[in-house]
Amino acid sequence: MSTAPPTIGATTPLPLPSPFTHSPLTLLTQGAEALVFRTTLLNAATPVALKYRPPKPYRHPLLDKRLTRARLLAEARVLVKCAREGVQVPEVVAVGVEEGWVALGWVEGGTVRGVLDGYTPSHPPSHPPGEQKDGQREEVLMGLMGRVGRAVGRMHEVGVCHGDLTTSNLMVRRKEGEKAQEHFETGGGHHTAGLEGLDGEIVLIDFGLATQSIQDEDRAVDLYVLERAFAATHPVAEPLFREVLRAYGESYKGAKVVLRRLEDVRMRGRKRSMLG
């Protein structure tokens, strides 16, 4: 590509499709398939996350169009299905099917990833270990993990598999009126002792790889991916993930079977062996 890669946080004049071409958008993050911007839609008081899948120059234009369209529609349909069934996901505000964008309701809050980075028990002992506080924090954190398990369980129950379930794709919605917490925005580094912001509900985001599936295998792989994400986020996150699984196991009928299947997946990894 001839243009310089955009930097995160900058208001960038990317060649976006109309009507966003000349709007000042703030780039939040960039993945392999999509760029995510923050902007407003419908009225100035409604912030949205605009997810744009730019065309891939290396693909045949016709194929590119079809793939983008199909993926976008799949994502939007899954989101609408989840919302209808009461799973906490961002709402679909508007879709530009041909242009490759979808506008999603803004979720105020931080990622579980950010929480874990700042909160796990092993974090620097420079912090005087006020015992009571630690115990309380542990409890709040466990509560959060329970909600993660139930949120994932609820999603699986309605027949949706996320496909890319990581701690960054789990958000904790900040309650209205609550102030922004530093530990959310900065991820690691800062760790405030506060417990605020951890009691919000769990919102699942990024359904770009989601499928509508009720197979135990797909569900187990979802959990396996999440487990790996937990392990990668923090070495001592294991007891936390155990709580996630416990809550998951109780969240819907059929969850136990998935947990047993998870054992198999752990043994062999995410991809099913094609031998024999």
Binding site: S18, N43, A94
Partner: peptide, 20 residues
């Protein structure tokens, strides 16, 4: 709500601009 109406209006306007 106004937002309900705005959503429909946006969709109509956007499709109109794209001539579809």
């Amino acid at each position: 709500s106004p937002r309900h109406l705005h959503a429909a209006t946006f969709r109509a306007l956007n499709d109109s601009v794209y001539n579809r």
